[in-house]
Write a protein that binds this DNA or RNA. Sequence first.
DNA 1: AACTGTGAAACCTTTCACAGCT
DNA 2: AGCTGTGAAAGGTTTCACAGTT
Lengths: 231, 231
Amino acid sequence: MDPSRLATGALRAPGRRRANVPEATVARLPLYLRALHVLAEDGHQTVSSEALAEAAGVGSAKLRKDLSHLGSYGTRGVGYDVTNLVEQISAELGLEHRCSIVLVGVGNLGRALAGYGGFASRGLAIDALLDADQGRVGEVIAGLTVQHVEHLPQVVSTGSIGVIATPALAAQEVCDLLVAAGVTSILNFAPIVLTVPDGVDLRKVDLSVELQILSFHEHRKAALTAAGASA
Amino acid sequence: MDPSRLATGALRAPGRRRANVPEATVARLPLYLRALHVLAEDGHQTVSSEALAEAAGVGSAKLRKDLSHLGSYGTRGVGYDVTNLVEQISAELGLEHRCSIVLVGVGNLGRALAGYGGFASRGLAIDALLDADQGRVGEVIAGLTVQHVEHLPQVVSTGSIGVIATPALAAQEVCDLLVAAGVTSILNFAPIVLTVPDGVDLRKVDLSVELQILSFHEHRKAALTAAGASA
DNA sequence: AACTGTGAAACCTTTCACAGCT
DNA sequence: AGCTGTGAAAGGTTTCACAGTT
């Protein structure tokens, strides 16, 4: 959110050799990682920027530029070593030491997230489920027992990621609780603008926003074809 | 994806007065709309760019620039008329004529999406549920009966938006079916890269990608504090 | 010959600062 | 006086094209 802080001096650590990785690049690293896993399972040992870009759904120049921000891990004339690149990207994303994920709000969406297998595969899995509703406390979902939201401080450890899947009205309160418990990275599914202190990273996923964006494009296309028909 | 196409000649329609709205602006219009609805319910008749920006979680300069792309709907010295602005943005997003939404894949996530109230409130609601699993066909979720995916052509109408909530392996096939049925706007929740023909808009929501991005920031913060401690 | 890594150009987005309207 | 609308500057991202390496 405040990119200027990304560039502040603090990271002149002893043996660091790389500059800051641009935000747009970070957002694509998970895509490359996923594509690489598929390639590895297919038995590929190396991959060209062209092929990996294709698998990840981006242009090859973009891919090379992105990877160049992590360092020079390719071999000219050959391509990238799949296993090595998986390791480099995983390291960059901090996926070595599985950080814990706590999910607050076990409604429809929370349940779906808890049961979603996509996380587990790659170093990320939900470790705790919490809810404010006593009626849900004790229920077992995807192998985890739902705890009352008051136990938040006990289930949070350093480096935990918080996921908010509560109704909009409860979201800010839950967010404050997460921050108070020391969480500095939050993913919000509630359709509301949350406020967090400096130093806390907040991302949001808003389903109806996505649909409205598509609605815009659909609307525009309809207008275009109507205009085309009248021309 | 290909911004150049957005700027092609085709839209020189007779009475058009506005230029193209930038993609980044489109992505924020739904946020403004939501904030405006809240303000309207609170009884506000007008709102300043400062106040609306605050409510939407953006800067006021950005908000004004965004709204200026839609036209001049504010009054200097006063602000924006809430009701009017809601109408203008709704029109821009094409939320007048409720376009139908068909959701394919009624697993955990699909169920959650079907039951999610967030859509219904604002011109967008799911109209049909489909699944490839005969065991799920006939089930009633959120007032809708699940139909077999073969009925897709019958439930799709012009301007429909397709939502894919199937497992990754089925997603491309379902996507192809949607495209064949005439859908030109698709929202994909499956963790896989989909290929669509030109002219079809594709957006994706990937939960594990979001978590991995947060993991990166968490990791970076940890590295920073470690470096800070050693300094 | 094949392919990476990267300056430079083109493009898009955000921020600033203020002219101009009410 | 207060606030919008907008050129211009600053910053970030993507694309191009090719030098350099294996």
